[in-house]
């Protein structure tokens, strides 16, 4: 009835094609592998949900999943409060503010495998500065031997690498709060805690939801850094889902189970992110008008 200009779709087309090739086609390939069995030489047999069934009963997968959840929970619990704390104490303007921003951005600019390599060397008890220093304090520290030491090393590395991201996002949120709010709070004689709880936190919530979501997805998919530092060891202590997946897919060349694993992995991340996002936005709506 009304002449809507349909040429606009042409502009979207390249993106659709790109997404199709980059995401949909590989995903479909993986789905294809996940329901078949192969014995090399390109021979495939229908296996139905067999691999998924195996996976759900695989102790190895559940262990990896447990480690993965524990790792994400630990880094989120450390990085989010720490990032907010740093953001709250960053200078608001002037030279120091710029300097802070540059310094904070540095870890984010280093390639993942370099981060891993840095910490791998840094933590070594024979030549690493950190390892030697800790050992000199009389603490028995060796991340290649002790599971706890390995965990501590990887968590500290991740915190070093990613807390900046939360801090920068929180800082942006804080900067958008009009000065009048702080003046009003001062006049109301609000405590520092009350200012944080009733002004800063509500105003930062939008960016924090994004920050937590990003950090959750990233930490849940972590691969490069622990692989470089510990290679998943000692034993299986730091074998997270992604490391396990690679071992399965490349090390053992079990394409079918690996594909099923990938799909489950993908679904778990999708589900948790979706649930988190929905809960946060619903909370928003309940508080909002009507």
């Amino acid at each position: 009835m009304k002449p809507i200009d349909n040429r606009a779709w042409l502009l979207v087309l390249p993106v659709l094609v790109l997404v199709a090739f980059s995401a949909v086609v590989p995903l479909m390939t993986v789905v294809n592998y996940s329901v078949q069995d192969s014995f090399g030489s390109n021979e495939f047999f229908w296996n139905g949900i067999g691999w998924f069934d195996d996976l759900l009963h695989s102790e190895r997968m559940w262990d990896a999943l447990g480690r993965q959840i524990l790792f994400s929970a630990i880094v989120l619990l450390i990085e989010v409060p720490l990032g907010i704390l740093i953001a709250l104490h960053m200078p608001r303007k002037g030279f120091w503010s710029s300097l802070c921003l540059v310094l904070m951005a540095l870890p984010l600019l280093i390639p993942f495998n370099v981060v891993g390599t840095i910490w791998q060397i840094f933590g070594r008890v024979d030549i690493g500065l950190l390892g030697r220093a800790v050992a000199a304090l009389g603490i028995d520290y060796n991340y290649t031997r002790d599971a706890i030491d390995a965990w501590v090393t990887i968590v500290v590395m991740d915190v070093w690498h990613w807390t900046s991201l939360i801090a920068l996002l929180a800082y942006a949120g804080l900067r958008s709060i009009p000065q009048a709010y702080y003046q009003a709070a001062e006049i109301d004689q609000a405590s520092r805690w009350a200012v944080f709880r009733f002004i800063e936190l509500p105003k930062m919530r939008g960016v924090l939801v994004i920050a937590i979501l990003l950090r959750f997805m990233d930490s849940f998919m972590i691969y490069t850094e622990p692989f470089v530092v510990t290679g998943g060891g000692p034993g299986n202590a730091t074998t997270f889902l992604s490391i396990d997946l690679v071992k399965m897919a490349l090390g053992q060349f079990d394409l079918g189970p690996a594909a099923a694993f990938s799909i489950m992995y993908f679904l778990v991340i999708l589900l948790v992110s979706w649930a988190f996002y929905t809960v946060m936005t619903n909370l928003d709506r309940e508080e909002g008008p009507r």
């Binding site: 009009p178 009003a184 004689q189 509500p202």
Partner: peptide, 24 residues
Amino acid sequence: QVFQFPVVYDTLTVRDNLAFPLRN
């Protein structure tokens, strides 16, 4: 002080907003 743009504590109820300076 009352500012040009309303300054309210978004997450608090109207009652808690009004009570805020007294409780502090």
